[in-house]
């Protein structure tokens, strides 16, 4: 009876399973196939060559990739540093204020990313909210911080803050208070408690937060375009251009595959290192 039930359960889940499998893998497979086509074709019924991948190196696309990964790394590190105290507060100290903070951060997600970024442009540009007022009152102006690498990283930090904050708070909430107290009782200083109790026990949350922020930041376009004024070109920007303006689907596909490969490997490595079940609240 139980075996029959299991069988029926599996069978009734099959249609949905098929939909998920097709939705997940079909686009990936199409992109993978396009990436090995000759340049500028619009069909996968061509003889494969790997020319699109060689363009990646010969025409300097690797520079965009490095910029994207570098800025994503910087944003992730900065996020980790600024979110830790906040997440710690949310998990252990703030009590009812945590709910207010959570709502406030979630609310910001209701407004489109582009609109929020343009808000920053209006705030920071020359003659904008800050510099404009400052100049009007003091008649001394200063240069806008816009259109540089620094402001792009700032934008990434700003936009992806919730994706670091919440997993981190979740991770820190898993550190038992009595373990921290016991460590102190056994003579550990604050720093030793942080290093030997907090970080290892919050590791799943740290890993999820870092992966989410890094993956999202590495594929980001808007920050570099809107705040950075294309001071640097990100890899996601290159991919978009290849598919649209460049009309070179194989090139766009090859760039996508490279990005997917690197980020996928990183994610798998990260996930294999921590026990995600803990974050999901499942019993071990």
């Amino acid at each position: 009876m139980q075996r029959l039930n299991q069988k029926l359960g599996f069978l009734s889940a099959l249609p949905m399973l098929a939909v998920f499998a097709i939705a997940l893998f079909a686009p990936l497979i199409v992109v993978a196939l396009f990436s090995i086509m000759p340049p500028k074709v619009f069909s996968i019924a061509n003889t494969p060559d790997f020319s699109a991948y060689s363009v990646f190196f010969s025409q300097g696309y690797y520079k965009s990739l490095l910029w994207s990964l570098g800025m994503a790394l910087a944003a992730t590190v900065i996020l980790l540093v600024i979110c830790w105290p906040l997440a710690y507060g949310m998990a252990k100290v703030f009590k009812s204020f945590t709910l207010f903070l959570t709502l406030a951060v979630v609310m910001s997600l209701f407004v489109s990313e582009n609109i929020r970024l343009f808000g920053w442009v209006l705030t920071l540009m020359k003659g904008g909210l800050i510099e404009g007022h400052f100049r009007a009152w003091t008649s001394v102006g200063f240069d806008s911080p816009l259109y540089g690498v620094g402001i792009i990283v700032f934008g990434l930090v700003y936009v992806y803050l919730p994706f670091m904050l919440f997993p981190l708070a979740q991770g820190i909430a898993m550190v038992p208070d009595d373990a921290r107290q016991a460590a102190a009782d056994l003579g550990a200083t604050r720093w030793q408690i942080f290093r030997q109790i907090d970080v290892p026990l919050a590791a799943p949350g740290i890993m999820v937060g870092c992966l989410l922020s890094f993956v999202l930041a590495a594929g980001a376009v808007a920050e570099a375009k809107i705040l950075g004024g294309q001071a640097v070109i990100t890899i996601a920007d290159d991919i978009e251009t290849a598919f649209t303006f460049g009309q070179d689907w194989p090139l766009g596909s090859a760039l996508s595959m490279t990005l997917i490969g690197i980020i996928g490997a990183l994610a798998l490595f990260g996930i294999s290192r921590v026990d995600l079940d803990q974050v999901m609240g499942r019993k071990r």
């Binding site: 373990a179 016991a182 009782d185 026990l201």
Partner: peptide
Amino acid sequence: MVFQSLALFP
């Protein structure tokens, strides 16, 4: 102190 929960480091 030996804690009620023991507070061993998991």
